[in-house]
Design a protein around this nucleic acid. Sequence first.
DNA 1: CTGCGTGATGACAGCATCTGTTGTCATTGA
DNA 2: TCAATGACAACAGATGCTGTCATCACGCAG
Lengths: 190, 190
Amino acid sequence: MPRWESDAQGRLERAALELFETQGYERTSVAQIARTAGLTERSFYRYFPDKREVLFADNELEAHLVAQVEAADRSLRPIEALLTALGTADAIFRPRDFLLRRTKVIAANPALAERDLIKLADIADALARALERRGVEPGKARFIVDVAIAISRRATSRWLTEPDATLSELVAQAAAELCEVVAPPAPSVR
Amino acid sequence: MPRWESDAQGRLERAALELFETQGYERTSVAQIARTAGLTERSFYRYFPDKREVLFADNELEAHLVAQVEAADRSLRPIEALLTALGTADAIFRPRDFLLRRTKVIAANPALAERDLIKLADIADALARALERRGVEPGKARFIVDVAIAISRRATSRWLTEPDATLSELVAQAAAELCEVVAPPAPSVR
DNA sequence: CTGCGTGATGACAGCATCTGTTGTCATTGA
DNA sequence: TCAATGACAACAGATGCTGTCATCACGCAG
């Protein structure tokens, strides 16, 4: 029999989400999370560099997207490669209700929202670098990534309320919406 | 004669920027900033809610942009109103060297970069609300704002390296670049 | 069986951020 | 003249986060 329960990290993550939901992020201390998980405060910091990171531990999304972009056919234009990759992201958002609980907690706390933005910015950086490896000039790569992320946000936001549609369908739809937004006013029928 | 020097807030801001530049953000304590400005640590927190905010105190940019959007001709399409507003932002970046020093310090510190992202997100929220007041549906408003900000980032990044061009010119140029990025491949001459 | 190294954890001390509260002194205005 | 207000200091405390060392179980060598 092991001296300590296994999956200490998972226990910390679950305890943290639970406590953040019930009493709020600010009002739960690291010591409390650790106690709930059967560990000490010091051990918490062995698994996570800081309190916020307990909700952002594994960043498979970034790795997934970069891999997708790198695997994309070289004949695709950069924006196409990005949108195709972003359309497959739903594979990562697996336990849907867990994602929703987490999203709700993050949205309710400025400190966590801040960290969320950083993570998104990290993904954007990584994608821009992936594009540069495909020969896109740096400044332009970042621009294309920003546009693709805007499209992806639009699609994901719809996806949360309409779980029936495929994410990649919604991405295509948002891309079409972009053209409509930037295009000169449609000539009205006279 | 006043009992205390005037402009305590300004003194704190200048002292903080100076100290962050010379010894780094992490290695300067709030107490040190306050001492340098001739105040106590406790007084620092009367002017700024936290240590980071000393570099983000006044957000005239947000107010300026929202005002511009609200003043925009109602006949303009949303994206046009936004891009016009963003093209006038150079009026806010006045003491150019101060802006550069500040930008450098922020870029060098994750904690400050984080706060910077939040400020940008706040601006995006405010602009989306301004668009909604013009009758744009909320989700779409946020999408248009995200696209406009992507364009603005591209333009501003160029503007920092080519100070000769007008910001609004560069915004128009970036908007054209967007069309080129999302448009289907140009039919090659055969 | 005994001793030893290793890895995960606890225990403790310490610094920094940030907050609540209270006291002190000048300025203001009736 | 005097009460109210504003600007600040002084003090105490909670919490986030770090460094350091002791402890305990396990496996392995002898």
